[in-house]
Amino acid sequence: MLGYTITQWIFGILSFLAIMLALMVVFSRNPVNSVLYLVMTFFCIAGHYLLMNAQFLAIVHIVVYAGAIMVLFLFVIMLMNLNEDTEPQRTWLTKIIAGVAGGMLLFVLVGSLKGAEQMQLSSYGASQIGLVKNLGKVLFSEFLFPFEIASILLLAALVGAIMIGKKEIK
């Protein structure tokens, strides 16, 4: 098709969608819509993961981000009953400044990312690294310490969130 492979088409479409949806996240006036756009962005990213044969990661990505994190966001937004009317808006000037700053940053980054053209992703058949078994082996051998210590992180977050969240007992 037009000289591109199916993969390239999929890549292109997913990327386009991801960027568009990400832009929608930023520019949508309604916070709930923002959340939904972000969820969809995450789906696109998960699609990319699948494209790179990182199946496990893709599904974990969905479970963690779409299934847990974004639900929390939605939860909070709904509890606070935020909608378009309550949405504060920055002045156009600030927005333009933010846009220009971001654009410049993008320009700098993209400019400096030259030189990677020659690096091609390795072929699909050989790549089994995204499978659960391989990931598990690496995670529990090489990355055992980070894995264990991440429990401290989660514990801390848990304790912290509960401490902040619970009502003050008088």
Binding site: F143, F145, L153, A156, V159, G160, M163, I164
Partner: peptide, 22 residues
Amino acid sequence: TTLFLGIEIMSIPLYVLAASKK
């Protein structure tokens, strides 16, 4: 990895502690 986790393990409790005067 340990750098990143270290930073976060150190920071996350502090976010909470900084906000701890409810």
